[in-house]
């Protein structure tokens, strides 16, 4: 398990990353935390000719929070994001999901942007980006663009990023809505630290009378990339999120989802678990919102 040969370059700036990517003619790979990329390289499932190290670019690190959004720069360690108190306050769901990423040693090295760029179907951060309608900034020598998360993941381990683009930051908008917000994240993994067979995330906003004004529910691990079901979310809005509402929404999810089968679980299993976990996160998020002080 030794990687095939490659050239290595430690980039000092995003501009240099872009230049190096251009020079590699589509065969360059960016390494940030390496927690996903290095196993693929030593198994020789990925063979970049040039590895571009972004770990020393200070402008790719840091978390910025204002009333509109939490912005996490791409090379921010998952550990740093998880331990950011202001982040947890601004976007509790983000903190809840980050706590379920890998285990301490992979979080210490793994990055938020790296997880997104690899787009593993079961990665918690990809699901968080999906439910929070994240905006992902990518830079190339041609300039920069912002990609809405719903357009970002194209399937398992494939994204809208071109081989000349460098993911620089991800922006998680904070809901600008009057009301009480509740969140929940849950997942089913065989061992606790494993990638989830199915994960679920939910964020709801209730008004003063307990009526749901906005709801998002996302499912990871079940399909090649995280999914949301519009009809399900619409079913919740305007209700008081009674058990019957949640069950009806969960049924809509169950009917809409088209899960994968692999050696750990069947599609039917994932469908049942997706329905169940969606129920659990909707319930917890609702209860949290109800308990929240305005």
């Amino acid at each position: 398990m030794k990687a095939a040969e490659f050239d290595y370059a430690r980039a000092a700036s995003v501009e240099e990353v872009c230049r190096l990517l251009d020079s590699a003619n589509g065969d360059g790979k960016i390494i940030a935390g390496g927690q996903t990329l290095v196993p693929l390289m030593v198994m020789r499932l990925t063979r970049p000719s040039l590895l571009i190290d972004v770990n020393h670019i200070e402008t790719l690190k840091g978390i910025m929070i204002d009333s509109d959004a939490v912005v996490i720069r791409a090379c921010t360690r998952q550990y740093d994001a998880l331990n950011d108190v202001a982040l947890a306050k601004a976007l509790p769901l983000l903190a809840k999901g980050l706590a379920m990423v890998g285990h301490p040693q992979t979080r210490n090295r793994g990055t938020v942007g790296g997880s997104l760029a690899n787009s593993d179907p079961a990665a918690e951060i990809c699901l968080l980006a999906r439910v929070l309608d994240a905006e992902i900034t990518a830079v190339s020598s041609q300039g920069s663009r912002v990609i809405a998360d719903k357009n970002f993941a194209l399937g398992a381990m494939t994204t809208a990023l071109s081989s000349e683009e460098c993911l620089t930051e991800v922006r998680f908008p904070i809901w600008q809505i009057a009301g009480r917000i509740g969140t929940a994240f849950d997942e089913m993994s065989i061992r606790r630290s494993d990638f989830a067979l199915v994960s679920a995330a939910c964020q709801v906003a209730l008004d003063q009378s307990g009526v749901c004004r906005r709801a998002v529910v996302g499912i990871g691990g079940a399909e090649p990339s995280p999914l949301r079901v519009d009809a399900m979310e619409q079913r919740l809005v305007g209700t008081k999120l009674e058990a019957t509402d949640l069950a009806a929404a969960a049924d809509l999810l169950r009917d809409a989802i088209d899960p994968i089968t692999d050696n750990h679980a069947s599609a039917d299993y994932r469908r049942r678990v997706a329905r169940e976990l969606s129920l659990r996160v909707m319930t917890v998020a609702r209860d949290e919102a109800l308990a929240a002080r305005n």
Binding site: A3, P104, Q105, R109
Partner: peptide
């Protein structure tokens, strides 16, 4: 395991425990 699961290669890198099989020496 050389693929980042078993943890036998754990070291303290810049103050944090990491897996040394998931980093290239040049990094």
């Amino acid at each position: 395991c050389e693929h980042g699961v078993c943890g036998a290669c754990s070291i303290i890198f810049e103050g944090q425990a990491i897996r040394s099989c998931l980093m290239f020496a040049v990094q």
